[in-house]
Deep mutational scan, measured.
Amino acid sequence: ELIWEQYTVTLQKDSKRGFGIAVSGGRDNPHFENGETSIVISDVLPGGPADGLLQENDRVVMVNGTPMEDVLHSFAVQQLRKSGKVAAIVVKRPRK
Rank of each mutant, 00 (worst) to 15 (best):
L2F: 14
Y7L: 12
K16W: 07
Q6W: 05
G65P: 00
V63M: 12
S74E: 14
G52H: 05
I21W: 02
G47W: 03
Y7V: 15
T10I: 05
I3P: 05
I3G: 04
T8D: 15
M68K: 02
N57G: 12
P30K: 04
Q55K: 15
I39L: 07
D43W: 15
L45D: 15
D58K: 03
R17F: 14
R95N: 11
K16C: 15
Q12R: 15
Q55N: 11
G48T: 05
G26I: 01
G35S: 08
F19Y: 07
P30M: 15
N34R: 14
E33A: 08
L53Q: 07
K96W: 06
R81G: 15
S42H: 07
R81N: 11
T8A: 15
E56W: 05
L45E: 04
D14F: 03
V44I: 08
R17N: 14
R59W: 07
N64K: 03
D14T: 15
K13D: 10
Q79N: 08
L11M: 06
L80Y: 01
F19A: 03
V90R: 11
V86G: 08
R81C: 14
V60S: 01
Q12N: 15
R27Y: 10
R27N: 12
Y7R: 12
I3E: 09
T8E: 07
A50S: 06
K82N: 15
I41R: 01
V23Y: 06
S38D: 12
R27W: 10
G18M: 14
N29K: 15
P67Y: 14
E69H: 09
K82C: 09
K82D: 12
Q55M: 15
M68F: 11
G35W: 03
F32H: 13
S83A: 09
I39K: 02
V91K: 02
I89N: 00
I39W: 02
T37L: 07
L53K: 15
Q78D: 05
Q12H: 14
V61W: 05
P94H: 09
A50N: 01
R93W: 02
V60P: 01
A50L: 00
P94A: 10
I3R: 05
K96H: 10
S38A: 13
E56C: 11
T66F: 09
L53R: 08
L11A: 01
M62Y: 14
L54G: 04
T66K: 12
T66L: 14
D70M: 06
E69N: 12
N64Y: 02
V91Y: 08
V77S: 08
A76D: 00
V77K: 14
W4A: 04
L11I: 11
E36V: 05
T37H: 09
R59C: 04
I89P: 01
R17C: 15
V77R: 09
E56D: 06
T8L: 07
V60C: 03
D51M: 05
G18C: 07
Q12S: 07
M68W: 10
S24D: 06
A87F: 02
L54D: 00
G25S: 01
E1K: 15
I41C: 04
D70T: 05
V40S: 04
L72H: 14
P94V: 09
R27V: 10
L72Q: 14
A88Y: 11
T66E: 14
V86K: 15
F75T: 11
N29M: 14
K96V: 13
G47F: 07
V77N: 11
E69D: 07
P46Q: 08
V60I: 10
F19I: 04
G47H: 11
D51P: 00
F32L: 11
D43A: 07
W4I: 05
V44L: 05
K16A: 09
K16Y: 14
L11T: 03
S83E: 12
P94T: 11
L54S: 02
Q6I: 09
Q55Y: 15
K16M: 13
E5L: 06
G18H: 06
D28A: 05
L54T: 03
V71N: 03
Q6L: 08
L54A: 04
V90C: 11
S74R: 11
L54F: 03
G65W: 06
D43V: 09
K13R: 14
K96E: 05
G25E: 04
G52P: 04
S15T: 15
Q78W: 07
T10N: 12
Y7D: 07
H31C: 07
V90D: 08
P67R: 09
V86P: 03
L72S: 11
K82L: 11
G26H: 03
P30E: 05
V60G: 02
D28P: 03
L53S: 07
T8S: 11
L54K: 03
R93S: 03
V77E: 15
S15L: 10
T66Y: 08
I39Q: 00
D14S: 10
L53C: 07
A88T: 11
R81L: 11
N34T: 15
P94E: 10
S42I: 06
V71S: 09
N34C: 15
G65A: 08
S24C: 12
E33F: 07
E5M: 05
F32Q: 15
V61R: 05
K85S: 09
K13T: 10
K16S: 09
D51K: 07
R17V: 13
E36S: 05
H31V: 04
S42L: 05
G48W: 00
S74I: 08
A50I: 02
K85A: 07
L45M: 09
Q78S: 09
S74G: 12
D70C: 10
G48N: 03
K16I: 10
R95A: 11
V40K: 07
V90N: 06
S83T: 10
I89G: 01
R93T: 02
P67C: 12
M62D: 06
S15E: 09
T10M: 10
V44F: 00
N64V: 00
K16T: 09
G48Q: 03
A76V: 06
N64P: 00
D28I: 03
E36R: 06
V63S: 02
P67N: 14
L54Y: 04
R27E: 10
A76W: 04
A88P: 04
L2V: 06
A87G: 09
V40P: 02
F32K: 12
G25A: 00
I89Q: 01
K82Y: 09
R81S: 14
E56V: 13
F32S: 15
G26Q: 05
L80G: 00
P30V: 06
L45W: 06
F32N: 09
D51S: 13
V86C: 11
Q78G: 14
R17G: 10
K85C: 13
L45A: 11
H73W: 11
A76G: 04
V40N: 02
Q12I: 06
D70V: 02
V9H: 07
G52Y: 03
G47M: 05
A22Q: 14
N29C: 15
G26F: 02
L72G: 14
D14W: 03
G47Y: 05
Y7A: 15
V9C: 05
S38E: 06
W4N: 07
Y7S: 10
K82S: 10
Q55W: 12
F19R: 01
F19K: 01
V90I: 10
T66M: 10
T37E: 07
P30L: 06
G26V: 01
N64D: 12
V71G: 03
V86S: 13
D14L: 04
M62T: 12
I41D: 00
G26Y: 00
R95D: 06
G47Q: 08
G35C: 05
F19D: 01
D43I: 07
N57E: 06
G20V: 02
V61P: 00
S38H: 10
N29A: 09
G52C: 03
N29P: 03
D70R: 06
T10P: 05
P46I: 10
Q12F: 13
G20P: 01
A22T: 13
E69M: 15
K92W: 07
G25H: 00
G25F: 00
T8M: 08
V86W: 09
V23E: 00
Q78I: 08
A22L: 14
S74D: 09
G18L: 06
G47C: 09
L53F: 11
G26P: 00
L54E: 02
L2T: 09
A88R: 14
V9F: 13
A88I: 12
Y7P: 01
P94F: 14
N57A: 10
